[in-house]
Design a protein around this nucleic acid. Sequence first.
DNA 1: AGGATGGCCGTTAGCGGTAACATAACAAGT
DNA 2: ACTTGTTATGTTACCGCTAACGGCCATCCT
Lengths: 361, 361
Amino acid sequence: MALALTRKKDLAQKAPPLNRPPPADPRRTLTLRDVSEASGVSEMTVSRVLRNRGDVSETTRERVLEAARALGYVPNKIAGALASQRVNLVGVIIPSLSNMVFPEVLTGISEVLEDTGLQPVVGVTNYSPEREETVLYEMLSWRPSGVILAGLEHTEASQAMLAQAGIPIVEIMDIDGTPVDSAVGISHVRAGRQMAEAILAAGYRRIAFLGTQMPNDHRAKKRLAGFEEALAKAGVTLADREFYSGGSALLKGREMTAAVLNRTPDVDFLYYSNDMIGAGGLLYCLDAGIDVPGKVGLAGFNGVELLDGLPRKLATMDACRLEIGRAAAEIIGGKRPKGIVGGEVIELTPTLQQGDTIRKI
Amino acid sequence: MALALTRKKDLAQKAPPLNRPPPADPRRTLTLRDVSEASGVSEMTVSRVLRNRGDVSETTRERVLEAARALGYVPNKIAGALASQRVNLVGVIIPSLSNMVFPEVLTGISEVLEDTGLQPVVGVTNYSPEREETVLYEMLSWRPSGVILAGLEHTEASQAMLAQAGIPIVEIMDIDGTPVDSAVGISHVRAGRQMAEAILAAGYRRIAFLGTQMPNDHRAKKRLAGFEEALAKAGVTLADREFYSGGSALLKGREMTAAVLNRTPDVDFLYYSNDMIGAGGLLYCLDAGIDVPGKVGLAGFNGVELLDGLPRKLATMDACRLEIGRAAAEIIGGKRPKGIVGGEVIELTPTLQQGDTIRKI
DNA sequence: AGGATGGCCGTTAGCGGTAACATAACAAGT
DNA sequence: ACTTGTTATGTTACCGCTAACGGCCATCCT
């Protein structure tokens, strides 16, 4: 015993100690101890070197780094996180990856997080609140430094978890409601209202709505609510409505448009709940030789990049995706002048892009 | 001291012990101990209940679950993983989320992983090998149960890490090369060749290539290589080529098409490296009143769903995205009759979809 | 009856790191 | 010479959970 101890001390002496030969079991995963033995310093010193924390002499630093590199050591963040009670992960929970909107939000988040040492971890819910609850639970069990999630509507259990978590929470995309902690987004009610006003101002009166059949897409619902509210104020009611679910959005846009124009031939405007089906509608109208925006006007929502390549520019309203992601990440990263209580709400204002599918007045 | 011990023993007695009032510090995050004290059993038993492992009587199980629910306890997977040396995460590293191809692969992966208790964690590289290396390092430091990553080309350091990791590795999308461990994908060289043959068979001879200016998109490169090889065999060389980077792919497709048709008016076929720019090209040709596929034929690659909504169906070749994701996940999940050595290569065969943009012979 | 079994639950010893403190060596201040 | 400080390193005690094992009781054989 005493011998062993002495031996160890010797290793720590200034005399360059023998670099141990490669580990006995080549298959076992490496630990700090392996690096420490290979470089003749304590585990603590190795830890300090690898994290760039605390004072270490230049010579030992190099020796340690060299040893770590030679062995191919990869630190174990699990152990590190447990010991330090710090995790550099941020949970990001979104409804879908195929909507394009969310990847863009993610881009904004990543951009900002990049230089904070934080790292996003994505979870997808497919617009299911139960799935969201599961994903959230799973994420919280890894004790992330923060959570960003889409929407303000969650199951009761999710709400409770979020409130209890003791970490910054940012609900994004939407601000029409009460956030658990912070929120960044736009008012979809207002967005719908604003679009309705623009359409009415251009003189359209026989207006139809075409959207997704998703009971849990609260934002689309809110847009429709705002839209109808503004119409009502002008004494106008929706001339028709059509919903879809699944399939290629572009194709569905075509089909729905055909259906509406067939069923209600006198409609003069089609408001789509997203740009993709709107684009499909636009292509359909052009194919069918319908005068756009003379006979029929069109508008979508989101301002997706795709639209730039279309034969005509679809009227839309951008949802400030990048900015939302950025702001959310800034809140998590603590880059914002934080309010005392914590919860802050950032409302961004989407801009209406008239495009070529609404009559100029 | 002794008193405290006795006290604890009492708690473990059969008499229903007092349920402690809410924890002193309401802000502190809960641990197994809190649940154990609240329910009057040992931490170990609580752990067993929450993991559904080992024998626990129905009555205590319920008591524990009730206590956990009441407190809002969320297990700490960090500690759990460290103790058990098991992590239910699978790293998935892909170049981009905006390509649509990758979200689809992800869908396939999720589908299969869902019922294995494994969970994907996504990392994005933006087609940068260095970034891939960083992401990989970060992921491995969480000791995942497996890694799925796109492509066969990685930095030397990445290769080393993958080889050392001691976990199943699946390289996806591409099989033209040597995988570290397993691989699932298609041969892009062959895909390019096959498309060239179809085009030649239809009688086109003045063929141009339009693609991305991404030095690290090896799969696009391989397709082009296979394409040119097959052309060469027929004594044909590319009449023109055009590259782009960044921006809206649809719009870029238009612009590039215009550029090529302008520069080389006698081209009779445009081969695009992806469907999105192909779609842009198609829209351009239709707008310009060019006879497709009579005067000019078009083809893309990927078989994205978007194409279904276009005025005419673009010829393409699907990349078996879903199947790739599924197969990769099955390998990781150990669902496959695993070979003794581990590494297996699954080659899927893409199908050519002629669409309406190649002359029928 | 006496041991064998199995259900149920507790105790102990880590997992691989890190915070916090302790130590050693040497330079500088007074 | 003695404190005081600084730099570079080691030691100790966890972090929160689980594997492994052990103990106790009731039940079931033979």
